[in-house]
Nucleic acid binder design. Structure first.
Length: 771
RNA sequence: UGGGGCGUCGUCUAAUGGCAGGACAGCGGACUCUGGAUCCGCCGGUCGUGGUUCGAAUCCACGCGCCCCAGCCA
């Protein structure tokens, strides 16, 4: 039996996060010894970038822990699911690099077992057949602020429930006639617990089980039990399922050790925050609109956020994995900056993409003093990449350069072609443009210039060369189509618009006819290039043919020049609006009733702080405890401890500390025989693990270090260990005082008297450095 | 409005009562036959107000804001 283990931080694919913390603890405590997760898509659409992130969390974590990650189709809704989506998911998940071994499952394969579990619940009075029509069920469920009411069918006999459920299975009832529901709590504040529907009747053909079934399990039933069946330990899902966890746990608990399910391991659900991407939508409904309206060419249009679209665009799975890594995992829903994805794509391509030259918007340049063809050896990679390889590029009289690389009226800082200036043609000669020929419309039609002798491979003396531009030989270059792909939407959050299509970016695809250097015809079709100064491109896998080259732009180069030009035109962005002032503590809090007000008054007379007095008055558990304590200690001394330290446990009703023990602890602290820090640690320890606080207090009383000499020695030892920090402190980083005290506390196991040690540190640090 | 979840640089994420750190973006510089890459530097944050504490992003209280839940979808 393989065992999971906590990975070393350096070998983690998935950076540490709140989920791995839970797993670490589960492994350390021996709760589970093999980590099993699952990626459970519903095969009702094409996987997209969101699936990449979710699968990264599920499968990446399992991989790190040497666990398993199952691929399971959550195919319990025959109305929406299709085999082609299963195929797409399998293909795309493999592409991402996930390996599930034999652990490829279908919820639909569990239908028979799930049915048996449902029957078990019915037999035990935990589920019933409800025959209310759909609208009534909705009505009876209540609303978030009104409790539901039980269905009249809720108390049907076991026999009748069993008979009806069997008949449902046997297709003897029309759709909508009955449903199977769990009997939980119709008045639960959590809507999911109001007798969730477990099964519905559907006379529909399922893409895998055909007509075998006319009842289908719902997500809330099938999902936890599928996890359980497969031995999943950590069922990771996104945050919108938080409230479903109550149903999840209910079912797992009720069915553990029954109908073929083990007692252990039991699965548990953990929710993470959703991630969305700027300038992108991923909902199936919206993507379908783009396809149907012809705004994109299909599900694999290179602009689409689908994995098939990203793949066709030329993005490699490595880039997506790195992107997911950088995005990270937390409990909060977040929208990620598109720039991060683009960075990940470039960072992936930079070291592997050979540099070649292409001109996407050609402008002829004729060199009056050059004849014939010179084949110039040009390396595929710049020196910083450190990769070998080169090709020969033909240099001729007639060239094409990029139209945007020439300017009649160059702006400040221009480093490209202009009349009368010398500019480097990349890998080739320096040229000087002598004149620009215009057409009737005043557009530049043709450039005429000359090469500078002796400028191949070296800079001509006495001539200032500005920049280097790319080019191709007009006599040798291959015609090609360039598809310049950009973000599909013009705004970062198209989802927030009433009609997201309003934000459709008509310039998301710009098609240009240009030329590429001839060397590419010998390369493998799937080669990803960097067309120098244009961006990363590859041949469109669908439309490109040897006799009709079509290149898709995977991503632009980071273009600081273009950005600067753009910024110059843009005005200041609106600054953050000022934050609204908050009311003072308690100002808008629930007003106190007369009795509470009386307690409040009394507390204040006894010397309690305002906030403590308020809480004592308002919270019966705290008040009762404090009253009990008053026999042992004056309330003014006890209140801060009771309110701030014991508060959480008192409210939950799980307090394990008797008042006299707390009183003794506080007295010990007041006598400076115990530090506050240590006292709080003791309280926490007893609350979590149990124990006798009184005994612990007595055992530790007097352990505080108050002796001046001893404290000084301790402080000196700490400072000696961190000379650089001492230096930094003296240079003004005063926050380090906390660090030093922390170190002293660690060294003394929390026994150093904090006020005293602080004073000692301060004295030591503020004296002259070399004294 | 009942219940639940969540608030840390512009964005994403660390810090588990003791140094608010990193990445992306931005800005500046070095280098450059790609206005790329690389290197160096800078900018910039704990939602607010109080309380507890020697010390609070972290604990407590009161506010504020965002998200989720009333499918026989998942």
């Amino acid at each position: 039996m393989p065992r999971s283990r906590i990975p070393d931080d350096t070998e983690r694919l998935v950076p540490k996060n709140f989920i791995t913390e839970i797993i670490d603890e589960d492994l350390r405590s021996g709760k589970y010894d093999l980590i099993v997760t699952r990626f459970p898509p519903e095969p009702n659409g094409y996987p997209h970038i969101g699936h990449a992130i979710a699968s990264f969390i599920d499968c990446g974590i399992a991989k790190d822990y040497r666990g398993r990650c199952h691929l399971r189709m959550d195919d319990t809704n025959p109305l929406t699911e299709e085999q082609r989506y299963v195929d797409a998911i399998v293909r795309d998940m493999r592409w991402l690099g996930w390996d599930w071994g034999e652990h490829f499952y279908f919820a639909s394969d569990y239908f028979e077992r799930l049915y048996a579990m449902a029957v078990d619940l019915i037999r035990r009075g935990l589920a019933y057949v409800d025959s209310l029509p759909e609208e009534k069920i909705r009505e009876y469920r209540g609303t978030p602020d009104r409790p539901g009411i039980p269905s009249p069918y809720r108390e049907r006999s076991l026999e009748e429930n069993l008979r009806l459920f069997e008949e449902m299975r046997a297709c003897k009832h029309p759709e909508g006639a009955h449903v199977l529901r769990a009997k939980i709590d119709m008045s639960a504040p959590n809507m999911k617990l109001r007798d969730p529907i477990l099964y519905r009747i559907l006379h529909a053909e399922h893409y895998r089980t055909g007509k075998r079934w006319c009842i289908y399990p719902m997500y809330d039933f099938a999902h936890p039990l599928s996890d359980f069946i497969e031995g999943v330990t950590h069922s990771l899902c996104s945050s919108e399922f938080i409230e479903n966890r109550a149903v999840y746990d209910w079912l797992v608990e009720k069915l553990a050790g029954r109908v073929g399910l083990p007692e252990w391991p039991r699965p548990k659900q953990i929710e993470f925050g959703r991630r969305s991407l700027e300038y992108t939508v991923v909902s199936k409904r919206k993507l379908i609109k783009l396809v149907e309206r012809g705004l994109v060419s299909g599900w694999d249009d290179p602009r689409m956020p689908t994995l098939s679209g990203l793949r066709r665009r030329g993005v490699r799975p490595e880039a997506l994995i790195e992107f997911a890594r950088r995005v990270g995992i937390s409990r909060t829903d977040r929208t990620v900056d598109l720039a991060l994805l683009e960075w990940a794509i470039r960072d992936d391509l930079n070291p592997i993409a050979p540099r070649v030259m292409a001109v996407s918007d050609p402008l002829p340049l004729e060199l009056s003093n050059f004849e014939g063809t010179e084949w110039i050896e040009a390396p595929y990679f710049p020196p910083d990449i450190g990769k070998p390889g080169s090709r020969k590029v033909p240099f001729t009289k007639r060239l094409f350069v990029e139209r945007s690389d020439f300017s009649l009226k160059p702006p400040k800082g221009w480093k490209r072609l202009e009349v009368g200036k010398a500019t480097r043609l990349r890998h080739a000669y320096v040229v000087v443009v002598e004149r620009a020929e215009l057409d009737e419309a005043g557009e530049v039609k043709r450039l005429v210039g000359r090469v500078v002798e002796g400028s191949l491979g070296q800079n001509p003396r006495g001539l200032k060369v500005q920049g280097a531009v790319h080019w191709v030989s007009a006599d040798h270059a291959l015609p090609a189509e360039f598809r310049l792909v950009d973000r599909l939407f013009r705004v970062p959050h198209p989802d927030e618009l009433e009609d997201f299509l309003e934000a459709y970016n008509p310039e998301s695809l710009i098609v240009q006819q240009g030329y590429v250097e001839p060397s590419v015809k010998d390369d493998p079709k799937e080669t990803r290039y960097q067309f120098e100064r244009l961006g990363y491109f590859w041949q469109d896998p669908v439309d490109s043919r040897p006799d009709r080259l079509v290149f898709v732009r995977i991503v632009t180069l980071k273009d600081t020049w273009a950005r600067r030009r753009e910024e110059a035109l843009k005005k200041e962005p609106a600054k953050k609006e000022a934050k609204e002032a908050s009311p003072k503590a308690g100002e808008r809090a629930r007003p106190l009733n007369p009795e509470e007000a009386e307690v409040y008054e009394r507390c204040q007379r006894l010397g309690l702080g305002e906030q403590e007095a308020y809480l004592v008055a308002k919270e019966p558990a705290i008040r009762a405890y404090l009253e009990e304590m008053s026999a042992h200690l004056p309330p003014s001394a006890a209140a801060p401890w009771v309110v701030h330290v014991l508060g959480p446990w008192l409210r939950r009703g799980t307090n394990k500390i008797p008042p006299e023990a707390l009183a003794e602890l506080i007295r010990t602290v007041e006598e400076r025989k115990l530090t506050t820090r240590r006292a709080k640690e003791l309280i926490e320890e007893v609350q979590e693990k149990g124990g006798d606080l009184l005994a612990l207090t007595e055992a530790e009383a007097g352990s505080v270090i108050v002796d001046e000499a001893e404290l000084r020695a301790l402080a000196e030892a700490v400072l000696a260990a961190y000379p650089d920090k001492v230096e930094a402190y003296r240079k003004g980083k005063k926050g380090l005082l906390g660090f030093f005290i922390g170190e002293a506390m660690r060294k003394s196991q929390g026994r150093a008297d904090p006020k005293a040690i602080r004073a000692v540190f301060q004295a030591l640090l503020d004296q002259a450095p070399s004294a």
